[in-house]
Amino acid sequence: MAAGLNLQRTVDGLLYLNLSNQGLTSIPEEVFDITDLESINVSHNKLTSIPEAIGRLQKLSRLDAGGNKLTSLPQAIGTLPKLTHLYVYDNKLTKLPTGVCLLLNLEVLSAFNNNLSTFPPGVEKLQKLRELYVYDNQLTEVPPGVCSLPNLEVLSVGRNPIRRLPDDVTRLTRLKDLSVPNCQFDEFPRQVLQLKTLEKLYAGGNKFDIVPGEVGNLQHLLDLALEHNLLRTLPSTMSHLHNLREVLLRNNKFDTFPKVLCELPAMEKLNISNNNITRLPTALHRADKLKDLVVSGNPLTYPPQDVRTQGTDGTMAFLKQEAEKG
């Protein structure tokens, strides 16, 4: 029945079948006879469809069909009661069938890099969903219903022609990771400022020129990416972000180095390359956890170039020395 199919047990004990990278144009029929199958990986093949027979795999909890040529999903997907992880990224999907919204135990849905312009009604039924990845599609809005998902921790909707976030995104009281790069915002998405649990905010490649002062309220923020915008200044309230580790500000319009960055005690990485900054302030040495400073592509005259060629450690040591002289 399953002869020749390499069944394995995963670390967490699931009966697993790996058929990825096999050049398959269809899933072998005998796969659907393995009714105890709990996880299947058919990613990076040449599949144009998944047969309705998938519905026979009633114990399936993980399905990875990313990196294929799927244009639709079978309705039978909605009959898999134990499915917790569904990966259909990097396909040719123009819509998800409504069956996906019947997966009441679904925790992770990864559908990035497709041609989705809408979402099926009923997304709000996915009450256990923790992670939703739909970046790189044709969505003009965050799918209605997404903001009703009480357990959502990761929402990735970048590279879609979305102009603004819905006001009720503030209902996502467990959201930790919000990714909205390369959308079509013309101002900073203010709704974000009420998401007090946020740890990672990626909002590069938009068109905003001001970061509101309330950003200082995001006390749990670890990573902040605002590259490829039109920023010239940062609010002084950013000094309240005591946990901020990574700040990405490359390709903006800074003429002077934002002094508030010198007040971030946890900052380990700062990329402020490709701006118009001529001097680094000596006060930057106070960010003593900084191990990765990228300032290339600025018309810097201070510190001198021979110092900058010594990398982050050399630059920080020089700034500290200069500050002590001062």
Rank of each mutant, 00 (worst) to 15 (best):
A2K: 12
T10L: 09
L19Y: 09
F32S: 12
V42S: 10
L47D: 13
G55I: 14
T71K: 15
I77R: 08
L83S: 09
Y89H: 12
N91C: 15
L93E: 07
K95F: 14
G99T: 06
V100N: 05
F112A: 08
N113C: 00
V123C: 07
V146A: 06
L155S: 07
S156N: 15
I162S: 03
R163L: 11
V169R: 04
R171M: 11
L172S: 08
R174Y: 06
V180E: 03
Q191S: 13
Q191P: 10
L193K: 08
L195D: 11
T197Q: 15
V211T: 00
E214I: 00
E214S: 05
G216P: 03
N217F: 01
Q219I: 13
L221I: 02
D223S: 07
L226I: 04
S236H: 09
L244C: 02
E246F: 01
E246V: 12
L249K: 07
T256E: 12
F257L: 03
F257R: 02
P258I: 05
K269M: 06
N271H: 03
S273M: 05
N274T: 02
N275W: 06
N275A: 11
T278F: 01
L284M: 04
H285P: 01
V294I: 14
V295T: 14
N298L: 07
P299R: 07
P303V: 10
T309D: 12
G314R: 05
A317Y: 05
F318E: 04
A323G: 02
